[in-house]
Design a protein around this nucleic acid. Structure first.
Lengths: 115, 115
DNA sequence: TTCGGCCATCGCCGATGCACGATAATGACC
DNA sequence: GGTCATTATCGTGCATCGGCGATGGCCGAA
Protein backbone atom coordinates (compact mmCIF):
# COMPACT_ATOMS: atom_id res chain seq x y z
CA UNK A 1 0.00 0.00 0.00
CA UNK A 2 2.41 2.61 -1.19
CA UNK A 3 0.42 4.74 -3.61
CA UNK A 4 -3.30 4.59 -4.32
CA UNK A 5 -3.98 7.36 -1.80
CA UNK A 6 -5.09 9.95 -4.29
CA UNK A 7 -5.97 12.43 -1.52
CA UNK A 8 -8.56 14.15 -3.66
CA UNK A 9 -11.61 12.29 -2.46
CA UNK A 10 -10.20 9.79 -0.07
CA UNK A 11 -9.82 12.22 2.80
CA UNK A 12 -13.49 13.05 3.12
CA UNK A 13 -15.53 9.89 2.80
CA UNK A 14 -19.21 10.78 2.49
CA UNK A 15 -20.24 7.27 3.45
CA UNK A 16 -22.14 7.59 6.68
CA UNK A 17 -25.09 5.30 7.14
CA UNK A 18 -24.96 5.34 10.92
CA UNK A 19 -28.08 6.68 12.62
CA UNK A 20 -28.13 8.87 15.71
CA UNK A 21 -28.87 6.75 18.72
CA UNK A 22 -28.40 9.05 21.66
CA UNK A 23 -31.27 11.09 23.09
CA UNK A 24 -31.67 14.77 22.28
CA UNK A 25 -32.42 15.84 25.82
CA UNK A 26 -31.20 15.16 29.30
CA UNK A 27 -28.08 16.11 31.18
CA UNK A 28 -25.66 14.54 28.72
CA UNK A 29 -27.41 16.10 25.77
CA UNK A 30 -27.21 19.48 27.47
CA UNK A 31 -23.47 19.20 27.92
CA UNK A 32 -23.03 17.91 24.41
CA UNK A 33 -25.05 20.72 22.90
CA UNK A 34 -23.24 23.31 24.97
CA UNK A 35 -19.86 21.97 23.88
CA UNK A 36 -20.80 21.94 20.21
CA UNK A 37 -22.34 25.39 20.39
CA UNK A 38 -19.28 26.72 22.12
CA UNK A 39 -17.14 25.33 19.34
CA UNK A 40 -19.04 27.24 16.68
CA UNK A 41 -19.40 30.30 18.88
CA UNK A 42 -16.87 32.32 16.93
CA UNK A 43 -17.30 33.92 13.50
CA UNK A 44 -14.03 32.56 12.19
CA UNK A 45 -15.02 29.02 13.08
CA UNK A 46 -18.39 29.43 11.44
CA UNK A 47 -16.62 30.59 8.30
CA UNK A 48 -14.26 27.63 8.41
CA UNK A 49 -17.17 25.27 8.83
CA UNK A 50 -18.93 26.76 5.85
CA UNK A 51 -15.82 26.54 3.72
CA UNK A 52 -15.52 22.88 4.52
CA UNK A 53 -19.19 22.19 3.90
CA UNK A 54 -18.91 23.74 0.46
CA UNK A 55 -15.92 21.50 -0.14
CA UNK A 56 -14.21 23.84 -2.55
CA UNK A 57 -11.12 22.50 -0.88
CA UNK A 58 -10.11 21.14 2.45
CA UNK A 59 -6.40 21.98 2.58
CA UNK A 60 -5.37 23.99 5.58
CA UNK A 61 -3.40 26.52 3.55
CA UNK A 62 -6.42 27.39 1.47
CA UNK A 63 -8.37 28.08 4.61
CA UNK A 64 -5.61 30.31 5.91
CA UNK A 65 -5.59 32.66 2.96
CA UNK A 66 -9.35 32.71 2.87
CA UNK A 67 -9.49 34.28 6.31
CA UNK A 68 -7.91 37.53 7.52
CA UNK A 69 -6.07 35.72 10.31
CA UNK A 70 -2.58 34.47 10.91
CA UNK A 71 -1.74 30.86 10.19
CA UNK A 72 -1.28 30.00 13.82
CA UNK A 73 -4.65 31.45 14.71
CA UNK A 74 -6.39 29.45 12.02
CA UNK A 75 -4.62 26.34 13.20
CA UNK A 76 -5.87 27.04 16.69
CA UNK A 77 -9.46 27.39 15.49
CA UNK A 78 -9.12 24.16 13.56
CA UNK A 79 -7.96 22.46 16.71
CA UNK A 80 -11.05 23.67 18.55
CA UNK A 81 -13.29 22.32 15.82
CA UNK A 82 -11.37 19.07 15.75
CA UNK A 83 -11.57 18.64 19.53
CA UNK A 84 -15.31 19.16 19.31
CA UNK A 85 -15.50 16.40 16.73
CA UNK A 86 -16.91 18.67 14.05
CA UNK A 87 -13.91 18.35 11.79
CA UNK A 88 -11.38 15.71 10.88
CA UNK A 89 -7.85 16.16 9.61
CA UNK A 90 -6.01 13.68 7.43
CA UNK A 91 -2.28 14.05 6.97
CA UNK A 92 -1.56 13.86 3.27
CA UNK A 93 2.09 14.32 2.58
CA UNK A 94 3.24 17.74 3.69
CA UNK A 95 -0.29 19.08 3.85
CA UNK A 96 -3.27 18.34 6.00
CA UNK A 97 -6.67 17.81 4.49
CA UNK A 98 -9.52 18.96 6.70
CA UNK A 99 -13.09 17.96 6.23
CA UNK A 100 -16.27 18.09 8.21
CA UNK A 101 -17.51 15.14 10.19
CA UNK A 102 -21.03 14.62 8.89
CA UNK A 103 -22.11 12.59 11.89
CA UNK A 104 -21.32 15.32 14.37
CA UNK A 105 -22.94 17.94 12.21
CA UNK A 106 -26.09 15.87 12.01
CA UNK A 107 -25.93 15.36 15.73
CA UNK A 108 -25.76 19.10 16.23
CA UNK A 109 -28.76 19.64 14.02
CA UNK A 110 -30.69 17.03 15.94
CA UNK A 111 -29.82 18.62 19.27
CA UNK A 112 -30.82 22.06 18.08
CA UNK A 113 -33.98 20.67 16.58
CA UNK A 114 -34.84 19.12 19.92
CA UNK A 115 -35.09 22.47 21.60
CA UNK B 1 -57.03 46.03 35.28
CA UNK B 2 -55.98 45.45 38.80
CA UNK B 3 -56.10 41.70 38.96
CA UNK B 4 -56.69 39.44 35.96
CA UNK B 5 -52.95 39.40 35.28
CA UNK B 6 -52.58 35.85 36.41
CA UNK B 7 -49.01 35.76 35.09
CA UNK B 8 -49.55 32.24 33.92
CA UNK B 9 -50.15 32.87 30.24
CA UNK B 10 -50.00 36.57 29.66
CA UNK B 11 -46.23 36.96 29.75
CA UNK B 12 -45.41 34.58 26.94
CA UNK B 13 -47.57 35.22 23.92
CA UNK B 14 -47.22 32.34 21.48
CA UNK B 15 -48.53 34.43 18.63
CA UNK B 16 -45.77 34.68 16.07
CA UNK B 17 -46.78 34.69 12.44
CA UNK B 18 -43.69 36.51 11.20
CA UNK B 19 -41.57 34.59 8.71
CA UNK B 20 -37.79 34.59 8.57
CA UNK B 21 -36.62 36.96 5.91
CA UNK B 22 -32.89 37.19 6.30
CA UNK B 23 -30.53 34.85 4.45
CA UNK B 24 -28.97 31.86 6.17
CA UNK B 25 -25.49 32.43 4.82
CA UNK B 26 -23.09 35.26 4.25
CA UNK B 27 -21.02 37.39 6.55
CA UNK B 28 -23.92 38.67 8.61
CA UNK B 29 -25.36 35.22 8.99
CA UNK B 30 -21.98 33.97 10.17
CA UNK B 31 -21.78 36.60 12.87
CA UNK B 32 -25.36 36.00 13.85
CA UNK B 33 -24.91 32.26 14.12
CA UNK B 34 -21.70 32.67 16.08
CA UNK B 35 -23.36 35.02 18.54
CA UNK B 36 -26.32 32.73 19.08
CA UNK B 37 -24.13 29.68 19.42
CA UNK B 38 -21.94 31.46 21.91
CA UNK B 39 -25.01 32.32 23.94
CA UNK B 40 -26.01 28.67 24.28
CA UNK B 41 -22.42 27.53 24.65
CA UNK B 42 -22.75 26.81 28.35
CA UNK B 43 -24.56 23.91 30.02
CA UNK B 44 -26.42 26.12 32.46
CA UNK B 45 -27.80 28.23 29.65
CA UNK B 46 -28.90 25.16 27.73
CA UNK B 47 -30.73 23.99 30.83
CA UNK B 48 -32.39 27.36 31.25
CA UNK B 49 -33.47 27.32 27.65
CA UNK B 50 -34.97 23.89 28.01
CA UNK B 51 -36.81 24.88 31.16
CA UNK B 52 -38.35 27.81 29.36
CA UNK B 53 -39.27 25.75 26.32
CA UNK B 54 -41.07 23.27 28.51
CA UNK B 55 -42.90 26.21 30.07
CA UNK B 56 -43.39 24.55 33.41
CA UNK B 57 -42.80 28.06 34.67
CA UNK B 58 -41.01 31.15 33.61
CA UNK B 59 -40.44 32.94 36.89
CA UNK B 60 -36.84 33.72 37.65
CA UNK B 61 -36.99 32.33 41.16
CA UNK B 62 -38.14 28.96 39.91
CA UNK B 63 -35.19 28.83 37.56
CA UNK B 64 -32.82 29.69 40.38
CA UNK B 65 -33.81 26.80 42.59
CA UNK B 66 -33.85 24.45 39.65
CA UNK B 67 -30.15 24.98 39.07
CA UNK B 68 -27.24 24.43 41.47
CA UNK B 69 -26.07 28.00 41.06
CA UNK B 70 -26.32 31.21 43.02
CA UNK B 71 -29.05 33.69 42.18
CA UNK B 72 -26.62 36.24 40.81
CA UNK B 73 -25.05 33.68 38.52
CA UNK B 74 -28.42 32.65 37.13
CA UNK B 75 -29.30 36.27 36.60
CA UNK B 76 -26.07 36.71 34.70
CA UNK B 77 -26.85 33.77 32.44
CA UNK B 78 -30.32 35.13 31.85
CA UNK B 79 -28.79 38.41 30.83
CA UNK B 80 -26.60 36.67 28.28
CA UNK B 81 -29.60 34.90 26.82
CA UNK B 82 -31.58 38.11 26.82
CA UNK B 83 -28.81 40.06 25.10
CA UNK B 84 -28.70 37.39 22.43
CA UNK B 85 -32.41 37.81 21.88
CA UNK B 86 -33.21 34.24 22.80
CA UNK B 87 -35.20 35.16 25.87
CA UNK B 88 -37.50 37.93 26.94
CA UNK B 89 -38.26 39.16 30.43
CA UNK B 90 -41.50 40.79 31.48
CA UNK B 91 -41.71 42.55 34.81
CA UNK B 92 -44.82 41.31 36.54
CA UNK B 93 -45.21 42.85 39.94
CA UNK B 94 -42.34 41.87 42.20
CA UNK B 95 -41.29 39.02 39.93
CA UNK B 96 -39.91 38.78 36.45
CA UNK B 97 -41.39 36.35 33.99
CA UNK B 98 -38.92 34.97 31.49
CA UNK B 99 -39.89 33.25 28.32
CA UNK B 100 -38.23 32.19 25.12
CA UNK B 101 -38.41 34.30 22.01
CA UNK B 102 -39.77 31.90 19.40
CA UNK B 103 -38.58 33.99 16.50
CA UNK B 104 -34.96 33.90 17.55
CA UNK B 105 -35.14 30.21 18.29
CA UNK B 106 -36.53 29.54 14.85
CA UNK B 107 -33.85 31.74 13.38
CA UNK B 108 -31.21 29.69 15.14
CA UNK B 109 -32.66 26.49 13.79
CA UNK B 110 -32.70 27.94 10.31
CA UNK B 111 -29.07 29.02 10.58
CA UNK B 112 -27.98 25.64 11.84
CA UNK B 113 -30.02 23.95 9.18
CA UNK B 114 -28.26 26.03 6.56
CA UNK B 115 -24.91 24.49 7.38
C1' DT C 1 -43.85 54.85 55.97
C1' DT C 2 -41.53 50.82 56.87
C1' DC C 3 -40.63 46.18 56.07
C1' DG C 4 -39.55 42.13 53.37
C1' DG C 5 -39.17 39.50 49.11
C1' DC C 6 -37.45 39.43 44.39
C1' DC C 7 -34.19 40.51 41.05
C1' DA C 8 -30.28 43.19 38.75
C1' DT C 9 -25.92 44.99 39.16
C1' DC C 10 -21.21 45.64 41.05
C1' DG C 11 -16.65 44.23 42.46
C1' DC C 12 -13.58 40.73 42.81
C1' DC C 13 -11.08 36.65 41.63
C1' DG C 14 -9.19 32.67 38.90
C1' DA C 15 -9.64 30.50 34.49
C1' DT C 16 -10.22 30.56 29.73
C1' DG C 17 -10.23 32.52 25.00
C1' DC C 18 -8.15 34.92 21.17
C1' DA C 19 -4.68 36.92 18.58
C1' DC C 20 0.08 37.15 17.24
C1' DG C 21 5.16 36.04 16.25
C1' DA C 22 8.64 32.70 16.74
C1' DT C 23 10.01 28.11 16.63
C1' DA C 24 9.81 23.15 15.93
C1' DA C 25 8.35 19.00 13.37
C1' DT C 26 7.22 16.65 9.21
C1' DG C 27 7.61 15.27 4.45
C1' DA C 28 8.72 16.21 -0.52
C1' DC C 29 12.22 17.32 -3.64
C1' DC C 30 16.81 18.15 -5.66
C1' DG D 1 22.99 15.16 2.59
C1' DG D 2 20.53 19.94 2.24
C1' DT D 3 16.49 22.97 1.35
C1' DC D 4 11.91 24.45 0.91
C1' DA D 5 7.08 24.34 1.95
C1' DT D 6 3.39 23.30 5.13
C1' DT D 7 1.44 22.82 9.58
C1' DA D 8 1.47 22.35 14.79
C1' DT D 9 2.90 24.04 19.00
C1' DC D 10 4.89 27.29 22.40
C1' DG D 11 4.98 31.60 24.85
C1' DT D 12 3.02 36.08 25.65
C1' DG D 13 -0.24 39.85 26.23
C1' DC D 14 -4.81 41.30 26.52
C1' DA D 15 -9.71 40.72 26.91
C1' DT D 16 -13.63 38.19 28.28
C1' DC D 17 -16.06 34.60 30.93
C1' DG D 18 -17.97 32.32 35.13
C1' DG D 19 -18.55 32.02 39.72
C1' DC D 20 -19.60 34.14 44.15
C1' DG D 21 -21.03 37.49 47.93
C1' DA D 22 -22.67 41.96 48.79
C1' DT D 23 -25.32 45.78 47.66
C1' DG D 24 -29.08 48.46 45.69
C1' DG D 25 -33.54 49.25 43.45
C1' DC D 26 -38.25 48.11 42.96
C1' DC D 27 -42.82 46.74 44.26
C1' DG D 28 -46.54 45.01 47.31
C1' DA D 29 -48.09 44.23 52.01
C1' DA D 30 -48.58 45.45 56.66
Amino acid sequence: MAEASAASEACCPPADPAPDLRPVEGAEADDELAALAKAIGHPARVQILRLLVRRTSCVCGDIVDELPLAQSTVSQHLKVLKDAGLVRGSVDGPRVCYCIEPRTLRRLKALIGGL
